[in-house]
């Protein structure tokens, strides 16, 4: 008897907790709903989405053309994946490189005025004086952004896949589909990193223009200058001359790679090119003697995933850290301007 009463007390306590959590989520749901609606109906997002769609379809068109002309000449495998990775003479970028390039911009656009925009419009104190927890606002904004990213990336990925099927007529294998799925998920995580970063900037900086500029500066830095910087630092640590030994050259290139892997952009690029290219078997430097005698072949999905697992974890961690920083600074910030 006693046990059951204890149980029932426990259950009722659990139910109360559940009610409280759901009650707190009411505010969260309202925020998510509103933010997704705002994003999708905003002109800013429309412009960017159009840009991304047009460039990606352009890339697809070129890729399909290139593949078609190559089919007769040599035997090609993984036609479906090539739709995403092939570039042509008239269009030097593939679908992959377009997403890698424009994806961060999508993330930044979704978040750069998340909090300081509310401050500017003087809606922050009014919204937070409603019975919601303070973190419901920032969580809601992040989740809404991620939902929109998922919609854009998956929509675009499947759109391109569908068009590609129609153009080439080669159906994908299960292996290829899984690779595509992994690629899309990776892209979502990567763009979510930029969303979290821009959210952080929108909390730190009071002006929306400052936070937008900071986001773009960060994007340029990571996309263009960081790899140069990594090379310079590696050269400083392990200088390589004409007569340097193998050890030195190897150390130099390993250092460069390690440093550039701090950047989520590098992580994403490496991971994506591995998962979408079954013939990529290793990411580090390979010596001639190691490659000697190796049988030419491709990796299975599982093996490719194993290769990029650290990258995936790293990207996820970078996104989480960025969001955690944004969360903490928002919770500590004064509501007053």
């Amino acid at each position: 008897m006693k046990d059951t009463s204890v149980e029932s007390v426990k259950i009722s306590a659990m139910r109360q907790d559940l009610v409280r959590v759901l009650g707190a989520n009411k505010g969260l749901n309202a925020v998510i709903k509103k933010e997704v609606g705002d994003h999708l109906s905003g002109k800013r997002f429309l412009i960017l989405a159009l840009l991304v769609v047009v460039t990606c379809l352009g890339a697809l068109y070129v890729a399909a053309g290139t593949i078609r002309s190559a089919v007769g000449q040599s035997e090609i495998d993984f036609v479906f994946l090539r739709l995403f990775t092939t570039s042509g003479a008239s269009m030097p970028f593939s679908f992959l490189s377009f997403i890698a390039f424009l994806g961060p911009l999508v993330g930044l656009t979704l978040g750069f005025d998340a909090i300081n925009g509310e401050r500017d419009r003087r809606t922050l104190s009014r919204v937070l004086s409603q019975p919601i927890y303070r973190d419901a606002l920032i969580n809601g904004k992040f989740i809404a952004g991620v939902i929109v990213i998922v919609m854009v990336i998956f929509g675009l990925g499947f759109l391109v896949a569908g068009f590609g099927l129609m153009m080439t007529g080669v159906p994908p294998t299960l292996d290829e589909l899984l690779r595509l799925l992994a690629y899309l998920i990776l892209s979502v995580i990567y763009i979510a990193f930029w969303l979290a970063l821009s959210l952080l900037f929108s909390i730190i900086f009071r002006q929306t223009s400052t936070s937008a500029l900071a986001g773009i500066a960060m994007w340029l830095f990571l996309a263009v200058f960081f790899s140069l910087l990594a090379g310079m630092v590696a050269d400083g640590l392990y200088p390589v001359q004409k007569d340097s030994g193998t050890e030195q050259v190897l150390a130099n290139s390993r250092a460069e790679q390690a440093i550039s892997r701090i950047s989520p952009t590098t992580l994403y690029d490496e991971a994506v090119s591995t998962i979408m290219n079954p013939s990529v078997r290793t990411l580090g430097p390979v010596l001639v003697e190691q490659a000697y005698g190796a049988i030419k072949g491709t990796l299975s999905v599982g093996q490719s995933l194993l290769l990029i697992w650290p990258h995936l974890v790293g990207l996820f961690a970078a996104t989480s850290i960025c969001f955690a920083l944004a969360y903490i600074s928002f919770m500590r910030q004064e509501i007053r301007a």
């Binding site: 705002d38 109906s41 905003g42 419009r121 003087r122 809606t123 104190s125 009014r126 004086s129």
Partner: peptide, 12 residues
């Protein structure tokens, strides 16, 4: 109910 100084709304 709180009516802040110079209350703001979502203009769009």
């Amino acid at each position: 109910g709180y009516l802040p100084d110079n209350v703001g709304f979502y203009n769009e």
